[in-house]
């Protein structure tokens, strides 16, 4: 952390802001325009639940 220069701070901050902007588009209900285009580009179709990805029946002791 202590090695990050001012320029490096700036670079990662801009990247993070850009990603938040993109995320907001992806979280909208719009299907057209930039929002729809980004969703079609970025998101895989939702997977149907399967036993390995769904809630398990195994008791969780920890």
């Amino acid at each position: 952390m202590t090695q990050r220069t001012a320029w490096q701070h700036r670079r990662v901050e801009i990247k993070s802001k850009l990603m938040t902007w993109v995320a907001n588009r992806v979280f909208s209900f719009k299907e057209n325009g930039v929002d729809g285009w980004l969703k079609r580009r970025m998101l895989k179709p939702a997977q149907k639940p399967n036993p390995s990805s769904g809630p398990s029946g195994v008791r969780q002791d920890r």
Partner: peptide
């Protein structure tokens, strides 16, 4: 609720 299910302001750092 017509716009979307989540929104986040663009973050400001430091």
């Amino acid at each position: 609720e017509e716009q979307g299910f989540m929104e986040m302001p663009i973050p400001e750092y430091r």
